[in-house]
Write a protein that binds this DNA or RNA. Structure first.
Lengths: 340, 340
DNA sequence: TTGTATGCGTTATCAT
DNA sequence: ATGATAACGCATACAA
């Protein structure tokens, strides 16, 4: 059968279960002889430790929960990969929960994770989350919590994000160096920190390089390709259309490229376009798309490391660590005027 | 504090823990009065059931494990999404493990999942897996196991796959209806069932439509774009080059398209190309790519349903269910000759 | 060095 | 209808 316990081993060997337990856990207080014997018979009997009993006993489940809007978005699944790869060697399991960007689902998932006695929680906050009492509950229980990408500013909670402002700045700077002087921006929902920061990075680059700010060049978009085609139409109707677009999203940048090509406007010759996120498809568009890589796997690994630190330290000390990763500018053909 | 147990409630109410437990579980053998009372105070005290204790007691963890090569591959993360969404309403958690296509890692992960007392295991078998003793161990423990996409033929194990042969057949049939008569094939590793089936679907369509088979038109490729560029070069050097390519992979199809465009050969006017998998990027290539959708979310949902059925039935009956999903042909511009 | 006893939180069995 | 108790499998404080 399948359920061999330390008690079974103890019976077979005529010793106590406690001794078996000690042998199995390399407890120093045991004779080498019996230790060897126990280990051998345990192997023979195909003994496997019951993680559940251990978890109940120790209060430690060796499991962490990850909350993301959707697992099948490339960015999130890459972060998950990072977390899993960093935590697996430490014996942790990874439970995945999807919030579908729904605040209520987020609360529910937090609750079930708490019930499941996870040792830590990683989350990218849902778009619609306003109330944070469920997060407070996590903190009350002293469960390490790490935000990634989308965070709330809550004292005592660590987070791993990327420097969106700088990512935007690098992009715009790159466009300027390509000779562009009239740079437009596709702006996301600035209620979200990340988009506000990208917008600010755009502004900062313009300022630093003494380029004038033109409010007609800033178009509010969502993250769909259609939004990009609409935005670029608006731009091209301007008396003085831009010679570059810095988009806060790869998808809107794609929509723009498609619309421009349809109208015979060349990218990058007539107008340079850069996106944001380094979605896998950006390397396959025509032309290939310049974008900003958010290093999601690294983000996951960092988040995991922050968690491990937290676990290693004093239980009662909720150290708050804010890690800000540097994004990576990926230059491709959509902004490359030296192609020839 | 955070740890309020049924015992705490029982003390406060001067009743036994057993009664509290019964009240909480809607046990009929209890008076409505005390039931209400317990429920109310439980709510007041913020009682939450300890899932771990329950799991230890019942032997049921309400957790399933999913093994995939990499979580951040679109296909796999989509399957995971399907499984999660189907199982969440039933109270199951989902643990993710990555095998990195390494047989040894697969064995290890199976072991730890077994230790964690998961109630079921979903897996897409690693490419390198030969020995299946770890899988036998799962069966011995009567843990429901469901293969998806990549399976091994093991008696008693259910699986959910797609009808690759038919997907290939539909693709080639479509090419024929576009007027193509000399159809080449990029063939994957036929040690894997899926590629063998796609190849057979290709052959069947040729036969059914009375097109001659030309062995020079079948090129062995791996799933990289470079492999596709190399393959198409070879094809175009033939005395009579093909007028269509059915590729077993989106990536090789992409490489082919890129190479052809570079040489001024038009897609689809001069040659039609179709891929396989409906990778997200296929809708953004130029031209957009015709491909076969493997309905991964649906695959996940089906796998979950098979598991739930298994759980619902008799414990000792390992019913073996083979679900074969119909793939979806997605027609786009790379094969569309009526575009004008 | 080893054994005994206890508890982690719950539910099920057997009384009452 | 309710209470006392055992059991799930393990680890540890204490006793020997």
């Amino acid at each position: 059968m399948s359920k061999v316990t330390i008690y079974d081993i103890s019976k077979k060997l005529n010793i106590s279960a406690a001794t078996v337990s000690r042998a199995l856990n390399n407890n120093p207080k045991i004779s080498p002889k019996t230790r060897e014997l126990v280990l051998k018979t345990a192997a023979e009997m195909n003994y496997e430790q019951n993680t559940l009993a251990l978890a109940l006993k120790s209060g430690k489940s060796n499991t962490v929960g990850i909350l993301v809007p959707y697992v099948d978005r490339n960015f999130f699944s890459s972060v998950i990969r990072g977390i899993e790869e960093e935590l697996y060697p430490h014996g942790y399991h990874v439970i995945i929960c999807q919030t579908r960007d729904d605040a209520q689902s987020e609360v529910q998932n937090i609750n079930t994770l708490l019930n499941a006695q996870v040792d830590g929680i990683f989350m990218s906050v849902s778009k619609t989350t306003k109330d944070t009492s469920h997060i407070d509950r996590v903190l009350q229980k002293k469960i390490p919590l790490v935000f990634f990408d989308r965070k709330k500013n809550i004292p005592g909670v660590s987070s791993v994000t990327i420097d969106d402002l700088n990512g935007a700045y690098m992009s715009v700077e790159h466009l300027i160096r390509q000779g562009c002087k009239q740079i437009a921006h596709f702006m996301g929902d600035i209620n979200l920190e990340i988009y506000k920061n990208r917008y600010n990075g755009y502004l900062k680059a313009l300022t630093d390089y003494n380029l004038p700010f033109n409010k007609d060049y800033v178009i509010r978009t969502n993250s769909k390709a259609e939004s990009g085609t609409a935005a670029v139409k608006k731009l091209m109707r301007l008396p003085s259309p831009p010679d570059a677009i810095f988009s806060s999203s790869d998808f809107t940048a794609l929509g723009a490229i498609q619309e421009l090509k349809k109208n015979g406007i060349r990218v990058p010759e007539d107008i340079c376009i850069s996106g944001f996120s380094n979605e896998p498809f950006t390397q396959y568009t025509d032309p290939t798309m310049t974008t900003v890589d958010q290093t999601p796997i690294k983000m996951g690994k960092m988040a995991a490391q922050v968690f491990l630190e937290q676990m290693g330290g004093e239980i009662s000390v909720a150290l708050e660590k804010k890690v800000v990763l540097s994004p990576q500018l990926v230059v491709r053909d959509s902004t490359n005027r030296s192609m020839g």
